[in-house]
Computed example of a mutant assay.
Amino acid sequence: MTGLLRTALVAAAALAALTSLSQAQGFPEHTVKIVVPTAPGGAIDLAGRLVAEKMQAKWGKPVTVENRPGAAMRLGAEAVQKSPSDGYTILVAHDGTMAINPLVFADLGYDPQKDFVPLGLVASIPEAVMVQVDMPAKSIVELIALAKKEPGRLTHASGGSATLLALELFKAMAGLDIRSIPYRGGAPAVTATITGETSMIIADLATGNAALQSDRIRTLAVTSLERSKKYPDVPTLNEAGVPGYEVNTWMGFFAPAGTPKEVVATIESAIKDAVAMPDVRARFETLGANVRSGTAEEMRQLLAKDVAKWATLVKEKNIKIAP
């Protein structure tokens, strides 16, 4: 390589770096879009809208929310993956989208740990086991007995891979056969159980809020190891008949891999500020969620931990979902 060519390449690299830094330092210069991979009304949608409002107030630039439901949240995630790595299109997702989908979909078009960079963890929330009120089961013990008496008759409304694996873990630990009926997101799945289309649902407390308040639903247990502060009279699955059962949904933000570090830091800072605000914390806590740090590092660590956790169940039960 000649000295002149080497100098030209170094200059080009330096110019590219300066351009990237300049763009990052001015971020955001226009509208930022947050993609929600589910229908409106669920926990992910709530997280996206709460944080979007605070981002917009902090930056003085529009922050919009776009719902892209379908294909067990893959459509929304893939749309963000294919977007420019500039921070203007980001994803809010939960463990189903990022930790579980890669394990159950053989044809998944993205790798959450390679194709995305974490921006911040905003909340975690227990799930609840709920049955349609006309079901004779009034406890987890009675639900297990009913499912064993008539294998395959009971149906579960699955709003995505997270609710599906929560069901699969329940089935595996209790030795049950319950059929999963897929829906386009958590909110439609909850509605299906309220109206009697399905026998039961395991849904996080935020997504299942309408069901928890409905006289058409009976709540049998929560999935955390400790009772919910919001629903202290509801037993845990661990104490109600399935020892050791624990599932908590989390929600966090992600950007396409390759997004400049300065842009990532700007978005992470806005997320941390948002979850520290009393009104945001109060809204999450009203729905039974636990507010988290908002940091990218906590999100990165939890994602890796959950991938390892669910991989064991998927392998043991040979769980796959048809494309």
Rank of each mutant, 00 (worst) to 15 (best):
P37H: 04
P37C: 00
T38I: 05
A39G: 10
A43Q: 11
I44P: 08
I44G: 11
L46Y: 07
L46M: 15
A47H: 01
G48C: 00
G48D: 03
L50Q: 05
V51H: 06
V51W: 04
V51F: 03
E53P: 05
K54N: 13
M55C: 14
M55L: 15
Q56M: 08
Q56K: 07
A57W: 09
A57N: 11
K58F: 15
K58I: 14
W59E: 08
G60D: 07
G60M: 04
G60V: 01
K61T: 01
P62M: 09
V63F: 02
T64C: 07
T64D: 13
V65L: 00
E66K: 01
R68Q: 14
A72G: 07
M73I: 13
R74H: 11
L75S: 13
G76K: 00
G76M: 05
G76E: 00
E78Q: 13
E78A: 15
V80P: 06
V80F: 02
K82D: 10
K82F: 02
S83V: 06
S83P: 11
P84C: 00
S85M: 05
S85Y: 07
T89S: 12
L91E: 10
L91K: 12
A93M: 02
A93K: 04
A93V: 07
H94L: 02
D95G: 14
G96Y: 06
G96S: 03
G96V: 02
M98T: 10
A99Q: 13
A99E: 02
N101Y: 01
N101I: 13
P102E: 08
V104T: 12
V104N: 07
V104G: 11
F105Q: 10
F105K: 09
D107Y: 06
D107S: 10
L108R: 08
G109I: 03
G109W: 06
Y110K: 09
Y110A: 01
D111W: 02
P112T: 09
Q113W: 03
L119W: 08
L119C: 02
G120F: 03
G120R: 03
L121H: 06
L121E: 11
L121N: 12
V122G: 06
S124T: 14
I125F: 02
I125M: 03
P126Y: 01
A128H: 09
M130W: 06
M130V: 12
V131C: 01
V131W: 02
Q132H: 15
D134A: 13
D134C: 09
M135C: 14
M135V: 12
A137N: 03
K138G: 15
K138T: 15
K138F: 10
I140T: 07
I140P: 11
I140E: 09
I140Q: 07
V141Y: 02
V141T: 15
E142T: 12
